[in-house]
Deep mutational scan, measured.
Amino acid sequence: MLYRITVRNADGEKLEIVVEMSEDEVRALAEELRKAGYEVRVEPIPEGEEP
């Protein structure tokens, strides 16, 4: 499935990426980023919607 991941650092800089991963993989990635001090938001992209 496609997911949009938005990551912000302490300075407020934002990075937005689209990935194709399983829900478990995305959850693990988000958890690791949060542990590293980043603010993370994950949104699933519905099938048929443009990323």
Rank of each mutant, 00 (worst) to 15 (best):
residue 1 M to V: 13
residue 1 M to Y: 08
residue 1 M to E: 05
residue 1 M to R: 06
residue 2 L to K: 11
residue 3 Y to T: 02
residue 3 Y to Q: 01
residue 3 Y to N: 01
residue 4 R to L: 06
residue 5 I to R: 00
residue 5 I to N: 00
residue 5 I to F: 03
residue 6 T to I: 14
residue 6 T to D: 03
residue 6 T to S: 09
residue 7 V to M: 13
residue 7 V to C: 02
residue 7 V to T: 15
residue 7 V to S: 11
residue 8 R to T: 14
residue 8 R to F: 10
residue 8 R to V: 12
residue 9 N to H: 03
residue 10 A to S: 05
residue 10 A to E: 01
residue 10 A to T: 11
residue 10 A to M: 11
residue 11 D to F: 13
residue 11 D to A: 13
residue 11 D to I: 12
residue 11 D to E: 06
residue 12 G to P: 01
residue 13 E to A: 15
residue 13 E to H: 14
residue 13 E to K: 15
residue 13 E to Q: 15
residue 13 E to W: 14
residue 13 E to L: 13
residue 15 L to K: 15
residue 16 E to C: 03
residue 16 E to T: 06
residue 17 I to P: 00
residue 17 I to Q: 09
residue 17 I to R: 10
residue 18 V to E: 11
residue 19 V to W: 03
residue 19 V to N: 02
residue 19 V to K: 13
residue 21 M to K: 09
residue 21 M to Y: 04
residue 22 S to P: 14
residue 22 S to G: 12
residue 22 S to W: 13
residue 23 E to C: 04
residue 23 E to N: 11
residue 24 D to G: 09
residue 25 E to G: 11
residue 25 E to C: 02
residue 25 E to F: 03
residue 25 E to P: 01
residue 25 E to H: 05
residue 25 E to M: 06
residue 26 V to I: 05
residue 26 V to K: 00
residue 26 V to P: 00
residue 26 V to F: 02
residue 28 A to N: 09
residue 29 L to H: 13
residue 30 A to Y: 05
residue 30 A to E: 05
residue 31 E to Y: 04
residue 31 E to H: 04
residue 32 E to Y: 03
residue 33 L to C: 01
residue 33 L to F: 15
residue 34 R to A: 06
residue 34 R to P: 00
residue 34 R to G: 07
residue 34 R to N: 08
residue 34 R to E: 13
residue 35 K to N: 05
residue 36 A to V: 08
residue 38 Y to H: 13
residue 38 Y to D: 03
residue 39 E to Y: 09
residue 39 E to T: 11
residue 39 E to M: 06
residue 39 E to F: 04
residue 40 V to M: 01
residue 40 V to C: 01
residue 40 V to E: 00
residue 41 R to M: 08
residue 41 R to V: 11
residue 41 R to W: 08
residue 41 R to E: 08
residue 42 V to G: 00
residue 42 V to I: 13
residue 43 E to C: 03
residue 44 P to T: 13
residue 44 P to F: 11
residue 44 P to H: 08
residue 45 I to K: 09
residue 45 I to H: 12
residue 45 I to F: 09
residue 45 I to N: 11
residue 46 P to Y: 14
residue 46 P to I: 12
residue 46 P to D: 12
residue 46 P to E: 13
residue 46 P to L: 15
residue 46 P to A: 14
residue 48 G to T: 15
residue 48 G to N: 12
residue 48 G to E: 13
residue 49 E to R: 01
residue 49 E to A: 13
residue 49 E to V: 10
residue 51 P to L: 04
residue 51 P to R: 00
residue 51 P to M: 04
residue 51 P to K: 00
